[in-house]
């Protein structure tokens, strides 16, 4: 009983800590006044309406979705192909290659962003959403590679061998045997990539110019005046993401 009480107390405290900022954020997004701090002056949907009527924010949201999906698709593709290469057991220097592919994981986003900024400068490449996507592929490919590599096991390999023995071409093997077998891993890698790209700030900040992603737009909103609009954006983004996650969760549960 003591133990149960201790566990319950700890959980309550920690969940309280975890939810505190989100709760405060959401509450004061309904503030009927100019400042998102106590006292709560009454309930208003004014700031939410302002967000939905802000063309720049909506454009940034669409930009973010575009960058997230495009860069994640590319990252999953690159990661999956490389993971399969390693899994064949025929890849020379497989260990070194794996290490090289996962190296970006331990490098700070700020450093990756700065390096790309300097390089694009030298190359004479203008900054745009495409350059942001390039940066996001760099940070997400290692992740996708690691997830796919962990998922490809002996079961896949023997199935692949069987398919090959039956005369299937390499592409068909990959598309019809390996990919479907590790579909959950591919999906997980893709969604994780989308999340990271969706929420990434510093690379997007350094590598974009006029068309910006949502975190960058929120950053400039934050710097253009204190008001509960920032709270409203945060709450709406939260709801959007939560619904997406819930949807995926339900979809995968039904599959089982």
């Amino acid at each position: 009983m003591m133990r149960f009480a201790a566990c319950a107390t700890y959980m309550a405290l920690l969940y309280g800590f975890i939810f505190l900022p989100v709760g405060v954020l959401a509450l004061f997004s309904f503030q009927d006044g100019r400042f998102p701090i106590p006292p709560f002056q009454g309930f208003s949907l004014r700031w939410h309406a302002e967000v939905l009527g802000d063309a720049d924010l909506i454009a940034a949201l669409l930009n973010s979705l575009m960058v997230a999906f495009a860069s994640s698709a590319m990252a999953v593709t690159l990661g999956f192909l490389a993971a399969r290469a390693v899994a064949t057991g025929r890849l020379p220097r497989a260990k070194a290659i794996s290490a090289a592919l996962t190296a970006p994981l331990s490098v700070s986003y700020l450093v990756i962003g700065l390096g790309l900024l300097a390089s694009f400068n030298l190359m004479g490449q203008s900054l745009s959403l495409a350059t942001v996507a390039v940066g996001h592929i760099v940070i997400n490919t290692p992740l996708c590679f690691a997830i796919c590599a962990a998922a490809i096991g002996p079961a896949q390999q023997s199935a692949e061998r069987a398919a090959r023995d039956l005369g299937a071409s390499e592409l068909r093997v990959m598309w019809l045997v390996t990919a479907p077998m590790i579909l959950p891993a591919l999906l997980a890698a893709f969604l994780l990539s989308v999340t990271f790209s969706w929420d990434e700030f510093i690379i997007a900040f350094l590598l974009s110019r006029f068309d910006v992603t949502l975190p960058v737009e929120i950053w400039s909103l934050l710097r253009s005046g204190l008001n509960p609009k920032t709270n409203a954006v945060g709450s709406l983004v939260f709801m959007l993401s939560a619904i997406a996650v819930l949807g995926v969760e339900l979809a995968t549960m039904r599959r089982k």
């Binding site: 590319m74 490449q125 203008s126 900054l127 745009s128 495409a130 350059t131 996507a133 390039v134």
Partner: peptide, 13 residues
């Protein structure tokens, strides 16, 4: 091809 595409994209605007 993708790389070339991104370059084109950025210079079209």
């Amino acid at each position: 091809a993708v790389l070339a595409g991104t370059t084109l994209l950025t210079q079209a605007a």
